[in-house]
């Protein structure tokens, strides 16, 4: 290696993170100005596909960091034994409301699942799942839990609230579900095209419409029983060639240099409080009450999916 050549940090993430409008380009600039290194982004088409990629290749691609894994996949990821423990003190994640003590995964943003509606078309939204199931006038777009993390999040959310009676609850929703999209982007796109009254997304989605498009008509339904959460995490791969640099990036991921770009780039909540311009974001994306956090195992995931698949025709 010549003296002038910079070290390269290979980060695997989902594609929207590094798009021109995602947080990736700004985070890259910010980190590269501090590390005298270059970031090489490698992408998969969805959050769910990230883990599969490193599992299939046993990380022969030389990826240093995997970023964007859904918390419901953490236990499965740990079973692969492909991830390294980190040395970051994560108890300072003030905005996460809990003391994070996982030794492998570090959270970098989070969100709450919710149904989004256009207040121009729907003036009296339901305030609970039971009310929603009774409103036959409301058509719903959800995502397939087998191919989409929000879809899996909804299955978890319903199971968490309804337990063994979740099958019956799914059945009561069935007639209202007009589309089961394979991915969040397809489902949300069809909602914007007017294909249904509400769509499964995040409580932060209205912030995008209000801040980026100046459209304040989109709102998130707030359910009194509480909302399930999705935490996105990152971790270092065991066979990383740049562990020191990877560690430096992990530390950077919970600093304002990274977190400043999360609300208006990834449209999720940052994990720390000290973030620039966060007030307007919270105005359009207030945090709902959250349910107890569940970091489901592989068998939990199977149970959640089964409760959906055995009820829907």
């Amino acid at each position: 290696m010549s003296l002038l050549s910079k070290e390269q940090l290979n980060i695997l993430t989902y594609d929207s993170f590094i798009s021109d409008w995602g947080p990736g380009p700004n985070i890259q600039k910010s980190f590269e100005s501090r590390c005298s290194c270059t970031i090489n982004w490698i992408t998969a088409d969805s959050s769910g596909a990230l883990l599969s990629r490193v599992k299939l290749s046993k990380n022969k691609e030389g990826i240093d960091i995997l970023m964007g894994l859904d918390d419901s996949l953490m236990s499965e990821a740990k079973e692969t034994n492909l991830f390294e423990t980190h040395s970051i003190n994560s108890s300072t994640l003030s905005n996460l409301n809990i003391s994070w003590n996982d030794e492998i995964f570090l959270p970098f943003d989070y969100g709450f699942f919710s149904f989004i509606y256009n207040s121009f078309n729907l003036s009296n939204p339901p305030t609970s799942f039971d009310q929603l199931a009774q409103r036959n006038d409301i058509s719903i777009i959800i995502m397939d839990p087998r191919t989409s993390t929000p879809g899996l999040g909804l299955a978890k959310w319903i199971y968490q609230l309804k337990g063994d009676s979740s099958n019956e609850f799914w059945k009561s929703l069935q007639d209202q579900i007009v589309i089961t999209a394979k991915s969040w982007s397809d489902g949300y796109g069809l909602f914007l095209e007017g294909e249904a009254d509400i769509v499964l997304s995040y409580t932060t989605s209205p912030a995008y419409h209000a801040i980026a498009e100046g459209d304040e008509t989109y709102k998130a339904m707030i359910f009194e029983e509480g909302h399930a959460e999705q935490i996105e995490v990152l971790a270092i791969l065991k066979n990383s060639q740049n562990k020191q640099l990877a560690d430096q990036f992990m530390q950077f991921s919970i600093s304002s240099g990274f977190q400043n770009f999360i609300p208006n780039g990834n449209w999720m909540y940052p994990v720390i409080d000290e973030v620039e311009g966060i007030e307007s974001f919270y105005r359009y994306a207030p945090k709902p009450s959250n349910l107890d956090r569940i970091f489901g195992s592989t068998s939990d995931r199977t149970t959640w999916i089964k409760s959906w698949s055995s009820s829907i025709e």
Binding site: Y14, D15, S16, I18, S19, W21, G22, N40, W41, I42, T43, D45, S183, W184, S185, D186, Y188, G189, S205, Y208, H209, A212, W267
Partner: peptide, 17 residues
């Protein structure tokens, strides 16, 4: 990040609202 085609670019726009 170095190799994207037009359909991939469209899909990126799509997943970014």
């Amino acid at each position: 990040s170095e190799f994207k085609t037009v359909p991939f670019f469209i899909s990126q726009l799509y997943s970014s609202y």
